[in-house]
Simulated scan of single mutants.
Amino acid sequence: MEKVNSYEMWLTVVNQQKPLLLFVKTDHCSVCDGLFPQVAALQVDYPISFYMVNIARVPEISGQLSLFSAPVVLLFNKGKEYARFARFVQMSELKYRITELIEWGKDID
């Protein structure tokens, strides 16, 4: 999972128009630390880009994406937010939405 180190980097990434997942975490967050390996493991099964940002280090993203807690998992397609999962993420629902995003993208291209 690639790290987003600045808001400018995030703008470049999201404007590439490709489906992607953004995992948002913060410092000293046990829920973030527990969820991260589960989400990171999905990279093997899904052909989308995975990114991670620590909002304690890049606080601009928090304001720009209206993030009020952590962890948050965001799915994007063509520069637009597609789905949002906050705090307690059900992995089955996340997998379903990633699959849906991939299939939806195939229909449009």
Rank of each mutant, 00 (worst) to 15 (best):
Y51V: 08
I48S: 10
Q16K: 15
P47T: 12
N54Y: 04
L22C: 04
A40L: 06
C29F: 04
D27R: 11
Q43D: 12
P19K: 04
A41G: 08
L42I: 09
A41Y: 05
F36L: 09
I48W: 08
T26I: 05
L22N: 03
M52L: 11
V44D: 14
Y46A: 08
V39W: 02
I55K: 03
D33W: 00
P47W: 13
Y46K: 07
F36A: 04
L22V: 10
P47Y: 14
R57N: 15
Q16I: 04
R57A: 15
D27G: 05
Q38M: 11
L35N: 01
P19A: 07
Q43A: 14
Q17W: 05
Q38E: 14
N54T: 07
V31T: 15
H28F: 12
D45V: 04
Q43P: 04
A40V: 04
C29M: 05
C32E: 03
V31S: 04
R57K: 15
D27K: 14
Q17P: 00
P47D: 12
L42E: 08
L22Y: 00
A56W: 08
V44A: 12
F50Q: 09
K18A: 06
K25E: 13
Q38D: 10
L21N: 01
R57W: 10
N15M: 08
L20N: 00
H28G: 01
F50W: 08
A56G: 12
A40K: 13
C32Q: 02
V31K: 05
G34Q: 10
D33Q: 13
D27Q: 11
F50H: 09
G34H: 07
S30C: 05
L35Y: 01
S30H: 13
H28S: 09
L21M: 14
M52K: 15
Q43N: 13
V53C: 09
P37K: 07
Q17N: 14
Q17H: 10
C32S: 15
I55S: 02
Q38F: 06
K25M: 12
H28D: 10
L35H: 01
D33R: 08
T26V: 05
P47F: 14
P19W: 03
Q17Y: 08
K18P: 00
Q38N: 10
I48V: 15
L35K: 01
V44Y: 11
V53D: 05
V44H: 13
V58S: 09
S49R: 11
A41E: 10
A40Y: 02
K25Q: 12
P37C: 06
A40P: 02
N15F: 06
A40G: 03
Q38I: 10
S49I: 07
V58T: 11
G34M: 10
T26N: 11
D27T: 15
F50L: 08
L35I: 08
A40N: 09
F23I: 02
P47N: 12
M52F: 11
L35F: 05
L42R: 07
P37A: 06
D27I: 09
V24D: 00
F23V: 03
K18T: 05
P47A: 14
Y51W: 14
V44M: 10
L21V: 09
L22Q: 02
Y51F: 15
D33E: 14
K25T: 07
C32A: 10
F36I: 01
A56N: 15
F23H: 04
F36M: 06
H28L: 09
D45P: 00
V58K: 07
F23M: 07
R57M: 14
V39L: 03
A40W: 01
S30K: 11
S30A: 11
P37L: 06
K18L: 12
R57I: 09
D33T: 04
L35Q: 06
